[in-house]
Design a protein around this nucleic acid. Structure first.
Length: 460
RNA sequence: UCCUCAAUAGCUCAUCUGGUAGAGCAUCUGACUGUUAAUCAGAAGGUAGCUGGUUCGAAUCCAGCUUGAGGAGCCA
């Protein structure tokens, strides 16, 4: 007969239900003075205070962490709104030893500590905010591309091509690995797929073939890299958005990617205020990022720096002679110089026309035949979030390039053959979703912005 | 994978050059009708990451391993 409300709703609409008897359900976040409960139900990080005046309510079993159903009157006091409890139902009991060893006790826990208890991490305010922003960005990406008439393509997670140049692959097999060790010879023909198979490192080649039929497409899913990289910006399993668009040139994908980023950040600032405010405070206290919200506002209002690879090398060498040679990839040392000294404005840098020798085979060459029609978008403190290019359209040129790079042609013949039906100009890019979430939440470590981080030595 | 640093109570950290292991919070018992990381009184809690070595004696010195943090490379 009484109505149930979640705490976010009660906080935002309390005028409508003030002085009514309501039901709330959640767990105890704080219990003070044997009298004041703070209840959280995950809908918001702003807890609802419940007071226990009724002497018939047994308080013995109530402790921090316990789930409760509370029937009470929503009242207004000097401290805001709270619920005067008439009746409390307790669900189960708390294992004291387990609780005491868990990250749920009301203390500050380091993020590496939180990571040791992944399944409990969701109850923390920090993770509540991060996951909600992650969710919001995920939805908004689909939203934006849908508005722009893109079609979402589900590209396979298991495949046999390895999109050359995108890192190490995880091999998958149904064969008994112990047998393989003994004989030291693998007969792939006996495997389930009758060939070598791996987890995808990128859906790009597949999404390109969808582009030939549908025009504007994207894939957005988990991709896998078996590199042994132990850094704060790498995962073995991460999420990548890869749009691919017919008749788009380099300038068009620059525009698309910049507009998408600005749309996402603008939306987050508008719709995730509570979460960003919390993260702003958290970052001020515990992270290097001292002004999260203004940093994000800055990024939606300003024009990004756009500079060619050649010019970047010149600028770096002007700063410090022989710090980089033409043809080298731009490393994190160079990124630091670019963001701290050359362009110290806390805005992304778009670098275009990279040399072909540090970019994959499918990128279209410029007229100089040594650089590609490619871009990387670098973000301050994170590095590369987006990499993209115009794709090679000519069958002969593509084949020529593949032969020179000695890439195994067999598994990607279907991709090369797409060029046998005419030379359609097209472009696309890959956006590292987790790195974007990392940037927007201001977190130091990419392992703290994904529910279950998978990285060397760590699997859930 | 490489380099640097670290590992002491459930958590955060003390223990100074080797000499009996300490605090705050959390936990437990009790008190408390306006607290908000409540407070007060009391109790309990440790083979100092693991394995060796040096020494009369090791949390402390040395070696190897494990785990974590920061940086590098690979990349998104």
């Amino acid at each position: 007969m009484y109505k149930f409300y979640n705490i976010k709703y009660i906080n935002e609409n309390n005028k409508k239900i003030l002085n009514k008897i309501i039901i709330i359900k959640g767990w105890v976040k704080y219990f003070r003075n044997n009298y004041f409960l703070e209840i959280n139900d995950g809908s918001t990080i702003k807890n609802l205070q419940v007071i226990i005046k009724n002497k018939n309510i047994k308080k013995k079993k109530i402790r921090i962490g316990i789930p409760l159903k509370i029937i009470g009157k929503l009242i207004k006091t000097n401290n805001g709104i709270e619920v005067n409890a008439y009746k409390i139902k307790i669900y189960g009991k708390i294992d004291k030893d387990f609780f005491n060893k868990s990250i749920l006790q009301n203390k500050f826990h380091s993020r590496s500590k939180l990571r040791q208890q992944l399944s409990l991490r969701f109850r923390t305010n920090l993770f509540n905010c991060i996951i909600k922003i992650r969710h919001f960005l995920f939805i908004k990406i689909h939203n934006y591309l849908n508005l722009k008439k893109f079609i979402y393509i589900n590209t396979p997670i298991i495949n046999k091509n390895n999109a050359e140049g995108a890192g190490e692959v995880f091999k998958i097999t149904t064969l008994n690995l112990l047998d393989i060790d003994k004989k030291s010879k693998v007969n792939c023909k006996k495997d389930l797929f009758k060939c070598k198979a791996n987890l995808t490192v990128s859906g790009q080649l597949e999404v390109e073939s969808a582009m030939y039929g549908l025009g504007k497409v994207y894939t957005f899913g988990p991709v896998f890299r078996a590199d042994n990289s132990n850094t704060k910006k790498h995962l073995s399993e991460f999420w990548m958005l890869e749009p691919e668009i017919m008749f788009y040139k380099l300038k068009d994908i620059i525009k698309l990617s910049v507009n998408l980023i600005k749309y996402l950040i603008k939306g987050t600032l508008k719709n995730c205020k509570e979460e960003l405010d919390y993260l702003d405070q958290y970052n001020k206290k515990y992270n290097n990022c001292k002004d999260l919200i203004n940093r994000l506002k800055n990024i939606i209002n300003k024009k990004y720096i756009k500079i060619s690879y050649n010019k970047t090398i010149k600028l770096l060498n002007n700063y410090n002679k022989n710090i980089i040679n033409w043809g080298d990839d731009i490393g994190s040392e160079h990124e630091k110089i670019l963001f701290n000294i050359v362009f110290p404005y806390e805005i992304p840098i778009i670098i275009y026309n990279y040399p072909k020798k540090i970019k994959p085979f499918y990128m279209k060459l410029n007229k100089d035949k040594i650089t590609t029609k490619s871009i990387d978008i670098l973000f301050p403190s994170i590095g590369e979030i987006i990499g993209g290019s115009e794709r090679e359209t000519s069958y002969n040129k593509l084949l020529d390039r593949i032969k020179k790079l000695k890439i195994n042609i067999k598994n990607i013949m279907w991709y090369i053959n797409l060029r046998k039906l005419g030379e359609i100009p097209h472009s696309g890019f890959g956006l590292g979703f987790d790195r974007l979430v990392q940037y927007i939440t201001g977190m130091n470590n990419i392992r703290d912005i994904i529910p279950y981080p998978i990285y060397p030595g760590h699997i859930f």
